[in-house]
Design a protein around this nucleic acid. Sequence first.
DNA 1: TTGCGTGCAAAGGTTTTGCATGGCA
DNA 2: TGCCATGCAAAACCTTTGCACGCAA
Lengths: 143, 143
Amino acid sequence: MIKATYKTRQQDLLLSFLKETAGTHFTAEDVKKHFEGSENPLGNATIYRQLEKLVADGRLVKYVIDEKSAACFEYTGESVKDDSQTHHFHIKCEKCGALIHLDCEELDHLVSHLKENHGITLNPLRTVFYGICDKCSKNETSN
Amino acid sequence: MIKATYKTRQQDLLLSFLKETAGTHFTAEDVKKHFEGSENPLGNATIYRQLEKLVADGRLVKYVIDEKSAACFEYTGESVKDDSQTHHFHIKCEKCGALIHLDCEELDHLVSHLKENHGITLNPLRTVFYGICDKCSKNETSN
DNA sequence: TTGCGTGCAAAGGTTTTGCATGGCA
DNA sequence: TGCCATGCAAAACCTTTGCACGCAA
């Protein structure tokens, strides 16, 4: 699916970084910084272009968290385009800013419901919920 | 709640525009364009600053749809900070780009579930779902 | 008169793009 | 050798900010 016509050193570097970060999220800048000191820094454009490809390929997911901050990416391993994989969602806490992974069958239920009753095929990989996380709710003395 | 120390003509203009658009979404640019021809154009900064105030006041909701496109706003009338109002969500179609309003009790259910079982207070006013809308699903011949 | 609101223009940050070069096949 | 990928720098985009002026109270 990806037009990986050529295989380059930069691609490999990026992929190994992605595998390291599996289960977490990172920004384009994180990638840049990660390679900055090394003898093989990656150009900005390269990073963005490679990430874009991986997103198109479904191996990477891009989250728009906030227009002020950079986009977050998450490596999802191999292609998940068929959406048969786990439905985990992300929740961004509006208070502490944490990006929380949420695995919940209730969400699977919602996905089914939307599909069957509204004709909508939800993309859990891109959807970000906003709200207040457990921790912040508990610390909520004032506001 | 809003620090409406002064009342200005621009504020009134903006508010009447917002009331016109109730139930739809618009961008800062939409506002700008709406007043562009008129004898009372609004400055960019003014628009953003006023919108920001209204968001802080809870009378306006801001959606981050896509970092490439401008933020979407929606007028919610009076303050909805207590979130006792309707829980309608937005769904952004990844194919046609439409931003769809979705009123569904299943979503209310989800809100309750997240609160009771995960301690998460979802903010429907900011949450945007991504997926493929009904129309696009039906037109889905290729891809 | 006081000081907030306005508006222009410039700055800010992230992401994209043009173009010449480098490297894979 | 052919062509994609790279990387630098510049551009693009939306949004914010500085500053002087205007206007509400």
